[in-house]
């Protein structure tokens, strides 16, 4: 009975994931075809000879009827084939996979930083409301939200890399080189999450079931960290899921500041070089990644919250 519910929920979420991915692929497909101007012409330049333009059009998969183009397109995506880069000639999927680890590690590290700072600070703020802890929490979130992440990035670079020399100045040289970028990327998210955690926790601590838990003679720690926190985490989790998407976007800028060879760099370079296949490929890939992450978050949510399981 209960496991049936869980399976149904997973099925429903999976279905939604697939639908989203289909929608994304279709939108990107249509965008390129419906926008004014001929991409092949743009890539080749105004005075290129028609044969070259035709060649490029071929490599973009833009010949034949729109239906056959669409089918080829979807077929390719299923096979993780985004075409070849116009400049390097290498498959876009290879380029993406090469760059992925840097971005993924950066985003992951930033998220870990966000969660590990935000939840304890937010919970402490709520539990010790109106104390010095709460004041610190509020100040932290105020500052974190006010300071732009690229500015944080530059500041951290100046202090810890230039002045103190604790971390490398640029490039991907292992874990160490990801710490400062991850902090600059995660700080703003962490600031928002502190607020959400605090408010959510305060709200839960005022609920009737908390009074019942006190009447049972449980110790405060159990009441706060088991009874209240489990409920308070539900909105926190939802926001975290949404933030992950934002992290991918933020990574593009941060990779630029710290000269990290990640997906963001690939994407930006693609834009400069009018390398359509690369741009398309990275957009789709990042959108897929975002949907995939949301799927996992929803799944986790359903596992914690019994009420979300059905419906």
């Amino acid at each position: 009975m209960r496991s049936m519910d869980t399976i149904r929920t997973i099925g429903r979420l999976l279905l939604r994931l697939l639908a989203t991915m289909l929608l994304i692929s279709t939108i990107v497909f249509l965008l390129l075809r419906l926008l004014p101007g001929d991409p092949a012409q743009v890539i080749a330049g105004i005075d290129a000879n028609p044969a070259d333009v035709e060649n490029i059009r071929n490599s973009l998969g833009m010949n034949g009827t729109i239906i056959s183009q669409y089918l080829t397109w979807m077929g390719n995506i299923i096979h993780f084939d985004f075409g070849n880069s116009y400049f390097s000639g290498r498959p876009v999927s290879t380029l993406i996979l090469e760059r992925l680890p840097v971005t993924a590690n950066l985003a992951l590290l930033a998220m870990v930083f966000t969660i590990l700072t935000a939840i304890p600070i937010g919970v402490l703020s709520a539990v010790k409301r109106w104390s010095i802890w709460d004041a610190f929490g509020l100040l932290y979130s105020q500052l974190g939200m006010a300071l732009p992440s690229f500015w944080m990035g530059i500041l951290l670079l100046l202090i810890f890399s230039v002045k103190l020399g604790w971390f490398p100045l640029f490039g991907a040289q292992g874990f160490n080189s990801l710490i400062l970028p991850a902090i600059s990327l995660g700080l703003a998210k962490s600031a928002v999450l502190v607020r959400i955690t605090r408010i959510s926790m305060i709200e839960e601590l005022g609920k009737p079931y908390i009074e019942a838990a006190r009447a049972k003679g449980l110790v405060d720690r159990r009441i706060q960290y088991v009874h209240a926190l489990k409920n308070a985490l539900l909105p926190v989790l939802t926001v975290t899921g949404l933030q992950l998407g934002g992290l991918l976007g933020g990574a593009i800028i941060i990779e630029q500041i710290f000269s990290l060879p990640g997906l963001g760099r690939l994407f930006l370079t693609g834009i400069y070089q009018r390398d359509f296949a690369v741009v398309q490929g990275s957009v789709i890939f990042m959108a897929f990644l975002f949907s995939g992450i949301n799927f996992l978050v929803d799944l986790l949510y359903a596992l914690i919250n019994p009420k979300a399981r059905i419906s």
Binding site: P208, Y209, E211, A212, A213, K230, N231, N305, P306
Partner: peptide, 11 residues
């Protein structure tokens, strides 16, 4: 308590 639904932890 009066409203058992609100006094039992939902999760």
């Amino acid at each position: 308590f009066q409203e058992p639904g609100r006094y039992l932890n939902p999760v």
